[in-house]
Structures are given as structure tokens and as C-alpha cells.
Simulated scan of single mutants.
Amino acid sequence: MTDPSVWSARIGPVLTRLQAEHRYGAKIMSMAEEGGDLLALRTSDDVIVYPAYQFDDRGPVEGWHEVLAAFRDRTDVSWTVAAWANTPLAVLGSRSVADALSAHNKKEAVVAAYAAARRWAR
């Protein structure tokens, strides 16, 4: 794996499960995890973390389930997806998928996700 600081710079802040539960409640986190609504990343020391851009003040931002569905068959790319989702994209007007979802532009974010998944599958 690449230097962890490289991933941190690309992904931004992360929350542990405990931090997310403290902020949003155990029930919300359980429902989001079971529904596939969150991108979970396993660190080199075997801790599961969640990119903070997936959350707003109330909990998980709507639309992540649909975005992540584009990559369901690619379980080996979670860190790459996390970095990609926080990278400005021309197709989104120089916004990231995370920004698009936060602005309630789910359709655009989902289209970008499926396009990326198709490119990566080649």
C-alpha cells in the first residue's frame, strides 16, 4: 500500500465507527452499513474508517448507496473509490462526487460513478 499520508491527503478526514455512532447514533450507523450506504475503508492496522465527506449534520448523505452500487463487483478498489469520490471531476463541473451528493445532485453523481466503473473495468 502507498504511504498512508498520500491517502489522507486525497480522502480527507475519516471517522471511526465509534466516532460516527457518537455523532449520529448506533441505529443510523447500523442501518447505513447494512444497506450499503457507506464506503468503509480498512486501515493497515485493521480499523474500519469512513470518509467524513459521506456525512452531513444529520448522518449519511443520501445517494451513496447508488454511487457505491457502481463499484459493487470491485471490492479491491475501496481506497481508490474513496479518493476518486473526493476528486474534482470535469463531468461534474470541477466538483467531486462528494460535493455533488452534498448539493443533492444524486443523478449526476451516479452517472459519474457508473462511467468511472466502466472505465476501470477495461
Rank of each mutant, 00 (worst) to 15 (best):
M1S: 11
T2A: 09
S5P: 00
S5R: 13
V6C: 04
W7V: 05
S8P: 00
S8M: 10
A9F: 11
A9N: 12
I11S: 06
I11C: 08
V14E: 12
L15V: 05
L15G: 07
L15S: 06
T16Q: 09
L18D: 14
L18E: 15
Q19G: 04
A20Q: 05
A20K: 09
E21N: 10
G25M: 13
G25R: 09
I28W: 01
A32M: 02
E34W: 03
G36L: 00
A40V: 04
L41G: 00
L41E: 08
R42D: 00
R42I: 03
T43C: 00
S44L: 04
D45Q: 06
D46C: 01
V47W: 01
V47G: 00
I48D: 12
V49G: 05
P51C: 04
Q54I: 01
D56Q: 04
D56E: 07
D56I: 06
D57E: 15
E62H: 08
W64T: 01
H65V: 09
L68S: 05
T75M: 01
T75K: 09
V77L: 15
W79S: 06
T80Q: 11
T80M: 09
T80H: 12
T80I: 15
V81E: 02
A83K: 02
W84N: 03
W84F: 11
A85I: 00
N86T: 05
T87V: 08
S94G: 00
R95I: 12
R95F: 08
R95A: 06
S96W: 14
V97W: 10
A98F: 12
A100C: 03
A103K: 08
A103H: 14
H104R: 12
N105W: 04
N105D: 14
K106A: 07
K107G: 01
A113K: 03
Y114H: 08
A115E: 15
A115I: 10
A116V: 10
R118T: 15
A121D: 09
A121V: 06
